[in-house]
Every structure is written in C-alpha cells, then in structure tokens.
Amino acid sequence: MTTFQWKKSSRSNAGGDCVEVARPHQSILVRDSKDSDGPTLSFTPGGWVGFVRGVKAGRFSL
C-alpha cells in the first residue's frame, strides 16, 4: 500500500467542509478530509490548473 502525505487546504473552514491534497510524482490527488478511505480525484498538473481556474471562475456548482 502506498502512503501519501496529505495536506489540508488552507481554504478549509471550521464547519468541516475540508479537502486534502497530496502530490505524488506527476499527479495531484484530492479527497474529502471527512472520508479518508473514500473516493479520490486524480489530476495531471495541467488538469489541476484548469480545474482550479474553473472553480475560481464559478464554473462548477453543487
């Protein structure tokens, strides 16, 4: 089993709405901090940049 060094987002709030990010070689992994055994999103570095830009531009909603 591979273990990654996960870091909680600096944008996380006290209400528990948190994400964690890990950066293994040539990828960015994202997970919900409340469900560390749950699903993980995986991005290439370029895909991550595009995703973050989309979030900041309001392109995604719940």
Rank of each mutant, 00 (worst) to 15 (best):
G58A: 08
T3L: 11
E20T: 03
V30S: 04
D32K: 02
A22V: 10
S9W: 09
I28V: 15
K34C: 02
G50H: 10
D17Y: 13
G46D: 14
R11D: 13
P45Y: 14
D17S: 12
T3A: 15
G58R: 06
K7V: 07
P39Y: 01
K7W: 06
F43Y: 11
L41D: 02
N13H: 07
F4A: 09
S12I: 06
I28C: 10
V19I: 15
V55Y: 07
T40G: 00
W48T: 01
H25D: 14
F4Q: 13
Q26W: 11
G47D: 01
T44L: 14
G47F: 04
P39G: 15
K7L: 11
S9G: 08
R11E: 14
G47W: 02
H25Q: 12
G16T: 10
G38R: 02
W6T: 05
K7C: 03
L41G: 03
R53M: 04
C18Y: 14
V49G: 03
S12G: 11
H25F: 11
S61R: 08
G50N: 11
P45D: 12
R31Q: 05
A22H: 09
P45L: 13
P45V: 12
P39S: 11
M1Q: 07
C18P: 12
R11A: 14
W6P: 07
R23S: 07
S42W: 00
G54V: 01
Q26F: 13
R31G: 04
G38D: 05
G54M: 03
K8N: 09
F43I: 00
D17H: 15
L41P: 03
T3W: 05
G47L: 01
G38Y: 03
S9L: 07
R59H: 12
L41S: 03
G38A: 02
Q5E: 14
S42G: 05
R53S: 08
Q5D: 14
Q5W: 02
L41W: 07
G54S: 03
G54E: 01
D37V: 01
T3D: 14
D32N: 13
A22T: 08
D35K: 05
R59T: 01
T3I: 13
L29T: 01
D35V: 07
T3K: 10
I28Q: 11
V30E: 11
S36Y: 00
S42E: 13
D32I: 06
S10N: 13
V21I: 15
S10H: 07
S36V: 12
G16N: 06
R23N: 07
V49A: 11
F51S: 00
A14L: 09
D32T: 06
V21E: 04
R23T: 12
R53A: 11
D17E: 15
F51W: 08
V55D: 05
T2R: 12
G47V: 00
R53G: 08
T40W: 05
K56Q: 12
A57H: 03
